[in-house]
């Protein structure tokens, strides 16, 4: 069953009582919340995610709710994220609860799922070959991901690349794409059919708006993919488009810098990163225009090297 098969009232009552059970990538979450923004966010942006009301094993039970019992809470209400009886982050203003939910879900996975080497990276796939783009915030990674996805690439994740330590396969973690500040309007102009959630303003990252992933990507949540290439994107306004091959040694170091749990995994992390990189190509991509960037990526995707 999909979220869109449920009546709004059923979603609300699940969120308010035992929790809404929802599959995101290889994990089942149970989400509890009394906040209307969270309800709306899940209904609009997780339409094709699997849901289930039968008792089952839940990987992560989480809660996003108004923080209780503080004087400040009456004057300026805040939402807090709870996992396992703990509140791992500072509460945020109530209207940022969708962003808090998304960050919380990412945190659950990046802090606990050590069956994967986890990279801070976007992952898209076409023709059975996955493209992984590790990069820091501000590199244009999410914007480029949204643009690729608008052209029919499958979205696996815009934030976390889950590389299976045993097989080297990358697993989907398909969630709404989080766009920030100027890139929100860029994508609204670029992709006219894009569905956006409510914007959260004044977050630590500025304005954040979430973009609904294509239904076709979400329904393939159980299909892992083989990594064909790493691309390190760099957006610079007005930059001429260029794509150049990156030495494996240097690519390796950038991958390690963008990994959440490389040191924790020790030798296994080393083996996994080397295996995946040895079976793929690595490129630097600098771009000032989305169409140029997509043309360059499509070129290598159609070429013989991959």
């Amino acid at each position: 069953m999909k979220i869109c098969d449920l009546a709004g009232a059923d979603i609300r009552s699940a969120l308010k009582s035992t929790g809404l059970q929802i599959q995101i990538g290889p994990f089942w979450f149970s989400i509890r919340s009394k906040l209307p923004d969270v309800h709306e966010h899940l209904t609009n942006l997780y339409r094709y995610a699997n849901t289930d009301s039968q008792p089952r094993f839940i990987d992560f039970s989480i809660e996003v709710d108004r923080k209780k019992s503080s004087i400040r809470g009456w004057l300026k209400p805040v939402a807090e994220f709870t996992f396992n009886g703990n509140v791992p982050f500072t509460p945020l203003p109530l209207d940022q609860s969708p962003a808090l939910l998304e960050w919380g879900i990412n945190w659950c996975v990046s802090a606990h799922a050590h069956q994967f080497l986890i990279l801070h990276a976007a992952v898209v796939e076409k023709d059975g070959k996955a493209l992984v783009m590790p990069a820091l915030s501000g590199s244009g990674k999410s914007t480029l991901t949204a643009a690729l996805v608008s052209k029919g690439w499958r979205l696996l994740s815009d934030e976390l690349a889950l590389l299976c330590v045993d097989s080297g396969q990358v697993f989907p973690f398909t969630k709404p794409i989080s766009l920030k500040n100027a890139s929100i309007d860029v994508i609204k102009d670029y992709w006219l059919d894009a569905r956006f959630g409510k914007s959260c303003t004044d977050t630590v990252k500025g304005t954040v708006s979430h973009l609904c992933p294509p239904d076709a990507s979400v329904v393939r949540t159980n299909d892992s993919a083989t990594v064909a290439a790493f691309i390190f994107p760099k957006f610079r306004s007005g930059a001429a488009p260029s794509l150049s091959s990156r030495a494996k040694s240097s690519a390796y170091m950038t991958i390690v810098e963008n990994a959440f749990n490389y040191y924790l995994l020790g030798e296994r992390g080393f083996e996994c990163a080397s295996y995946v990189l040895n079976h793929s190509e690595a490129f630097d991509l600098s771009f000032g225009d989305l169409d140029d960037a997509i043309a360059l990526v499509s070129q290598i995707w159609g070429g013989e090297s991959l």
């Binding site: 089942w28 990987d59 020790g266």
Partner: peptide
């Protein structure tokens, strides 16, 4: 045990290995 439960157990074993190392 169910495979999805095994994953959590193994994941925490990895954390232990790091502490031990």
């Amino acid at each position: 045990i169910d495979v999805s439960v095994q994953k959590h157990l193994l994941s925490s074993w990895r954390i232990f290995e790091k502490y031990r190392r």
